[in-house]
Amino acid sequence: MNALNEYNRIFRETFGVSEDALNEDFTFNGVAVWDSVAHMSLISSLEDAFDVMFDVDDILHYGSYFHGIEILKHYGVEF
């Protein structure tokens, strides 16, 4: 599994966006469809796909597309 491809697929499917939208502006505060419900769906999909269990603080601070990659690296996911 290519981690970045899988990561992008989850973002595309969760938020219904194209890959072009996944950039530094794709953040919890900057994207209207990224609300608390979508956030739970995102976190659940990421945990399933990468076989990780996020701490509550990491769930709460998973605030952007790029920052999420850094968090996943802490859980041993290689990009």
Binding site: S36, M40, I43, S44, M53, V56
Partner: peptide, 9 residues
């Protein structure tokens, strides 16, 4: 598992 985070959000 997500309840606490969801409540806080």
């Amino acid at each position: 598992r997500y309840f606490e985070a969801f409540c806080r959000m």
